[in-house]
Design a protein around this nucleic acid. Structure first.
Lengths: 190, 190
DNA sequence: GGCTTTATTGAGTGATCACTCAAGTATATA
DNA sequence: TATATACTTGAGTGATCACTCAATAAAGCC
């Protein structure tokens, strides 16, 4: 009986994610979204409810796609090698809307307003850190990382390094590749 | 002949800096500023010209005060020790409006809009990096850093580490002190 | 083809945005 | 004290914000 929507919901979320990722939360207006998604206000609100609700869907997609990509990398190259390859990958992707991490951008923008989306971003950063820890643990099990290292500490520092790299890569004239290489090299000495 | 303003301009800039630092550019409205600075719109615009102009003054103060603090630290403890102490200092300051660096917050928020303030923030990050390089060089001269190290590379990586630390420190439940300790420890092995 | 159900349209909502300006007030010099 | 020169006040500007809703169009089921 009902009429079907004439759009691909997941594709809309991906496009919204790219817009939010690049421009941030306050920097992305509904006009921007309507223009990018080719939706009138009525359709937009029928489909997503609010700007914040769509932002949350975008965050979720960002996080789960990222986690899947890292898992695939670990599957192909092994845990430590995946962690070594990741830094250069994240700053080398020319299709990405920004070098910086969408989660950290969201956290920095909205944390001070106690905005629920800041908490969501924080939670996803925590999940990401747990994934790193898992990979360090597996690397340790197969002897790629010394036994006296703590996977959780390594994950915490690794994520911090990655966030710093991705902020630096947002700047002009910074040789981010050599920072990425430094991070990868550090992992080789574990 | 003229009437003198009944405020301390430098104090106003410091208060504005704290507001901008915590809430960001879009997150700080004129109403917020008027309330914090206790100025009516007319006085505000007579004194500063625009929100952007005041933000630039705030950025300038943030950068120059930070540079002066690091120089004082190096004067007291020597260059390498100053660089080792800095990470814990920046995340341990309870009076600061935020853990994250105001320059990186500004860069991440405004870069995608090609906003002039993003460029200003980038320039000040570059100056900061140059100051780090200078300190690494002096540390090298007095034998605290091995001769085969490149001060500029060290500075680039050190700044990236600091930026990552300060993003991580913005999160809930992250043991930022141990990240800071990792950074300081890394400098001891140069 | 009728009917029900949902998607789409787009003008319009009040609120807030950065900012203006004419009027009033205070102060230092003459 | 008179005057010139600011500084201060606060209502008001048009623009843009996220969002609403009544009207219309389209699709699946009988």
């Amino acid at each position: 009986m009902p009429r079907k929507p004439n759009y691909d919901r997941d594709d809309l979320i991906a496009r919204a994610r790219d817009l939010f990722w690049r421009r941030g939360w306050a920097g992305t207006s509904l006009k921007d979204l309507e223009s990018e998604l080719k939706m009138k206000p009525g359709s937009f609100y029928a489909a997503f409810g609010s700007k914040d609700a769509l932002f949350e869907l975008a965050l979720q997609k960002y996080a789960s796609d990222g986690a899947a990509r890292l898992n695939a990398l670990a599957e192909e190259f092994g845990p430590l090698s995946a962690l070594q390859r990741l830094p250069e990958m994240v700053i080398d992707n020319d299709q990405a809307p920004a070098r910086a991490c969408m989660l950290s951008k969201t956290l920095l923008e909205l944390q001070s307003h106690a905005h629920p989306l800041a908490k969501k971003a924080d939670e996803k950063l925590q999940l990401m850190e747990a994934q790193f820890a898992q990979l360090f643990m597996r690397a340790q099990e197969i002897g790629d990382v010394a036994q006296d290292r703590d996977p959780k500490s390594l994950a915490r520092k690794y994520q911090s390094d990655l966030l710093g790299l991705r902020v630096s890569a947002e700047r002009d004239g910074v040789d981010a590749k050599s920072i990425a290489a430094d991070i990868a090299e550090g992992l080789a000495r574990l």
